[in-house]
Amino acid sequence: MTVGRRWTWSFRARVFGAILALGALAAWGLMVGSPPRWPTDGGWALAGEMLRAALSPTLSPEAGFETAGRGEGSVLSEALGAAQRTVTFALAGCSLALLWGLPLGLMASEVFWRLLGRRPGTCRRCARWLSAALRSIHELLWAVVLLAALGLSNGTAVLAMAIPFAGIFAKVFSELLDESPQSATFALAGAGAGPLGQVCWGLLPAALPDLGAYAVYRLECALRSSAVLGFFGFPTLGYYVAVAFENLHYREMWTHLYVMFVMVAMLEVWSASLRRRWVG
């Protein structure tokens, strides 16, 4: 018994050591290519200006030739409109991802094939590979690809989020389903229930709290992604942040950022209380 204990600790110690050593090696490797730079005076000034602007966000557009046509107080209305679109895109993307992710997750799980009474063969492997392929490419990169293929349209943003999220849903859902308690499905099978009955009355009800909690958590992630997608020209909060940043309007930028923080924080509090209720 002591031997077992000693071994586990030393395995973890080795992992710790490996992480530190690899971190140091990687830092050295990075330094060869791009030596670390100390901030220049200009850098300090710019960063200082950015941080100072955080204390005085503005509701009215800052002076500049590109402000023509933007009225008093229009920053807030821009930000709120963008916030609304950010939420809209996130909801649409997340619901679309859920629609595809749940069946894909079922197909990628082991228990589903057991309930069908088949060996989890090629179908399961295909579902797993598909979900891996979908999620291996970041939503921003999907956005880049879809922009090139489809052009700028709000639907493109929704698709760019829905594709990798469907892959992530599929992976996580399949794991949650396989880990959920399955004793009830055996009882239902003993009562002569078919695969559909076992899935709907035994498997899904037992796993639903976990699935729901994860879906709500993913909605948080979708909101952040949706905001960031604005960097590519979609009319969400990120767009206004990027434009203000490029025009050096840091005070406007902070207004938008604050709206984003508040929105994300509100959703986080809400979703956390939901998740506490469901999975304790």
Binding site: R85, V87, T88, F89, L91, A92, S95, L150, S153, N154, G155, T156, V158, L159
Partner: peptide, 14 residues
């Protein structure tokens, strides 16, 4: 539902 119906997603445009 509101997002899909009235959220200006321009899905038709795709």
């Amino acid at each position: 539902v509101f997002s899909w119906l009235a959220g200006d997603l321009q899905v038709g445009g795709l």
